[in-house]
Simulated scan of single mutants.
Amino acid sequence: MTSNLKSICKTLRLAYVNEIYEDIPFENPTQFLDELFQKELQFREEAKSERLIKKAKFTQKKSLSSFQWNEQIHFPAHIDSEELCKIDFIGRRENLILTGAPGTGKTHLATGIGYEACKRGLEVRFYRVSDLAESLEKAWRDSKLAQFRGRFKSVDLIILDEMGYVPFNKEGAELLFQLISDWYEQKSLIITSNLEFSQWNRVFSDSRLTAALVDRVIHHAHILNFTGDSFRVTNALSRQR
């Protein structure tokens, strides 16, 4: 490709044409341009997905295709695994609550949905809840709370992992409540927890705040209950046999 054509591609923001045009078979002008621009769009979408995945800051790479559905995952009557994997609930700003014992697949499913959302061009953020509370407290101490909360303006889905593993102090609990209140009916949330809602008092200590938080979280929510033994423990025991 000539330097002039490279310059035109740069001006038109055709990032991949320069790299791929020689690999496109030529049958006629229309076919060539159609395949060339289809490839350009494909690579753009893939690059965007990678950027979104990086920004989401997942703690591990998991996909919906590798998730093992089983009879120990209990769905509400109005939704099933096929419907859930369409991830249409995100567009409706509905929440997904995954409760159950550690090691039963909650984080894998939450992450898999997050990856799928990124592939579809949606903004996602992944947080361990304890880390988010610490970040909120730091932002508050540094007088940057408004700036921190503003980071979520364009985010479509927030995944809050491990709700209930670490209790919060009074400031952390109140700040987290304020943030989730900001997101109420504006964002879609996925929350994983090893505690039933009736036990969230252990985390937030204030019963009135806990009740108000649960009320916001479960409104417009799909609640899945994971039962059975930990996959990690089961796999470790099977290796020892």
Score class of each variant (00 low, 15 high):
residue 172 G to C: 08
residue 126 F to V: 02
residue 64 L to R: 00
residue 200 W to D: 01
residue 193 S to C: 06
residue 187 K to G: 01
residue 186 Q to I: 05
residue 59 T to V: 05
residue 69 W to V: 08
residue 98 L to Q: 01
residue 74 H to T: 13
residue 57 K to T: 04
residue 116 E to F: 09
residue 151 R to K: 14
residue 57 K to I: 00
residue 237 L to R: 13
residue 190 I to H: 05
residue 20 I to T: 11
residue 212 A to Y: 05
residue 233 V to D: 10
residue 178 Q to H: 11
residue 203 V to Q: 10
residue 206 D to I: 04
residue 117 A to L: 03
residue 50 E to G: 02
residue 105 G to W: 01
residue 59 T to S: 09
residue 100 G to W: 07
residue 185 E to K: 13
residue 41 L to I: 15
residue 152 F to A: 07
residue 26 F to C: 12
residue 78 H to G: 02
residue 145 L to M: 01
residue 90 I to T: 04
residue 137 E to V: 14
residue 56 A to D: 01
residue 107 T to V: 05
residue 179 L to P: 03
residue 233 V to C: 09
residue 49 S to R: 12
residue 140 W to T: 02
residue 222 H to L: 03
residue 6 K to A: 13
residue 44 R to D: 10
residue 68 Q to L: 13
residue 82 E to N: 12
residue 116 E to P: 03
residue 64 L to V: 05
residue 149 R to F: 07
residue 191 I to F: 03
residue 122 L to S: 13
residue 52 L to G: 05
residue 164 G to D: 14
residue 16 Y to S: 14
residue 101 A to N: 14
residue 70 N to P: 05
residue 138 K to C: 00
residue 77 A to D: 09
residue 38 Q to F: 07
residue 124 V to G: 01
residue 119 K to Q: 09
residue 24 I to M: 06
residue 132 L to D: 06
residue 10 K to Q: 15
residue 95 N to S: 07
residue 157 L to S: 08
residue 241 R to E: 14
residue 106 K to A: 02
residue 70 N to R: 13
residue 117 A to S: 08
residue 73 I to R: 02
residue 194 N to L: 08
residue 130 S to K: 11
residue 182 D to H: 12
residue 42 Q to G: 09
residue 211 A to T: 11
residue 153 K to F: 12
residue 51 R to S: 09
residue 28 N to R: 07
residue 91 G to R: 10
residue 84 L to E: 04
residue 66 S to Q: 11
residue 215 D to L: 12
residue 123 E to G: 10
residue 2 T to P: 04
residue 40 E to H: 11
residue 208 R to P: 01
residue 203 V to A: 11
residue 34 D to V: 12
residue 204 F to V: 07
residue 108 H to P: 01
residue 22 E to S: 14
residue 229 D to E: 15
residue 29 P to E: 14
residue 163 M to P: 01
residue 232 R to Y: 09
residue 20 I to S: 06
residue 34 D to S: 15
residue 29 P to A: 14
residue 126 F to W: 06
residue 107 T to P: 00
residue 167 P to I: 11
residue 178 Q to F: 06
residue 72 Q to W: 11
residue 101 A to Q: 15
residue 121 G to S: 13
residue 52 L to V: 07
residue 193 S to D: 08
residue 144 K to E: 06
residue 124 V to Y: 02
residue 41 L to G: 13
residue 98 L to F: 05
residue 206 D to G: 04
residue 129 V to P: 00
residue 229 D to F: 00
residue 136 L to G: 03
residue 5 L to S: 10
residue 47 A to K: 15
residue 174 E to R: 10
residue 54 K to M: 09
residue 158 I to M: 03
residue 187 K to V: 05
residue 39 K to P: 02
residue 166 V to M: 09
residue 205 S to K: 11
residue 51 R to Y: 07
residue 212 A to K: 04
residue 23 D to G: 10
residue 76 P to C: 07
residue 188 S to W: 03
residue 54 K to G: 04
residue 110 A to R: 08
residue 104 T to A: 09
residue 212 A to Q: 02
residue 110 A to K: 09
residue 214 V to N: 05
residue 234 T to D: 03
residue 237 L to K: 12
residue 47 A to I: 02
residue 193 S to H: 08
residue 135 S to N: 14
residue 143 S to V: 00
residue 139 A to Q: 05
residue 20 I to F: 10
residue 71 E to T: 15
residue 142 D to C: 04
residue 200 W to R: 06
residue 150 G to T: 02
residue 182 D to N: 12
